[in-house]
């Protein structure tokens, strides 16, 4: 049922709906609704058979989230009550921040997994003709930068680079790896500009008019309603808490 409903909605209105849901996430200041949202997104991933891919993309965020919780627990200035060295207020704050980050990542990754890239690019050109290609280039470049980091690390290690124990040794090692990556990124940018030119980008560039169907309008309306309801609920709980 979900699949057939989703199929009727174009990529552009889906993107708008996702945007409204993302804004809704910002409204909450409690971990319980954020956790509920996260579990909902994971459930969607199961329904659409992309759970494995989603989880693998979210793993780096999981590590980051754990670091955020740990740091706030230890050093958040609002820490008053402690369990051993971990402040409860800081833990709560860190957990909310991490869950919010996790939700944003999960929702955006879910959107990318369920929508072909060329349709996203096409939908983005509704806002501005160049926006779609900018998104495509960012998405294609990020894994390249990651791969380049691995390659450069291998190459410099083969030349004798050691990542020592001390912070200044590690900082030097990062410099040795980062400089070639930055240089290659700049060169890559220039080559990308040439490629865009020779492959005809811009020949027929124009702001597209998005034609909304019946299902598209309902989706946007419902997601806007969802946003308003969440804002009201979030405010109500905040006031209730006060």
């Amino acid at each position: 049922m979900f699949k057939s409903v989703l199929h009727k909605i174009k990529t552009g209105p889906r993107a708008v709906s996702v945007l409204f849901v993302l804004i809704s996430l910002m409204a909450y200041h409690s971990w319980k609704p954020l956790l509920a949202y996260l579990l909902t997104f994971l459930a969607f991933a199961v329904i659409f058979h992309v759970l494995g891919q989603l989880v693998s993309r979210l793993l780096p965020i999981l590590y980051l989230g754990c670091v955020i919780v740990l740091i706030h627990s230890l050093v958040n200035p609002s820490n008053v009550h402690y369990i051993y060295i971990f402040g409860i207020e800081g833990f709560n704050y860190g957990l909310i921040t991490a869950l919010r980050l996790f939700n944003i990542a999960a929702l955006t990754q879910l959107f990318l997994l369920l929508n072909p890239l060329h349709e996203i690019i096409s939908a983005m050109s509704w806002i501005h003709p160049d926006l779609g290609i900018i998104l495509a280039l960012v998405l294609s470049t990020l894994p390249v930068m990651h791969q380049q980091m691995e390659i450069t690390l291998k190459v410099q290690t083969a030349r004798g680079l050691r990542r020592g124990r001390f912070p200044w040794q590690r900082l030097y090692a990062y410099l040795v790896i980062l400089i070639p990556i930055i240089v290659k990124a700049l060169v890559r940018g220039q080559v990308i500009a040439q490629l865009l030119h020779v492959r005809g980008y811009g020949l027929h560039l124009a702001k597209r008019n998005l034609e909304l169907g019946h299902s598209d309008k309902i989706a946007i309306f419902l997601s806007l309603g969802f946003l308003i309801v969440n804002l009201l609920l979030a405010n109500a709980s905040l006031l209730g808490g006060l």
Binding site: A136, S140, R188, Q194, L195, V198
Partner: peptide, 13 residues
Amino acid sequence: GVVLQDSDVFLME
């Protein structure tokens, strides 16, 4: 149709 010297650079994933 052009193939640049640096064919390791590409636009799409």
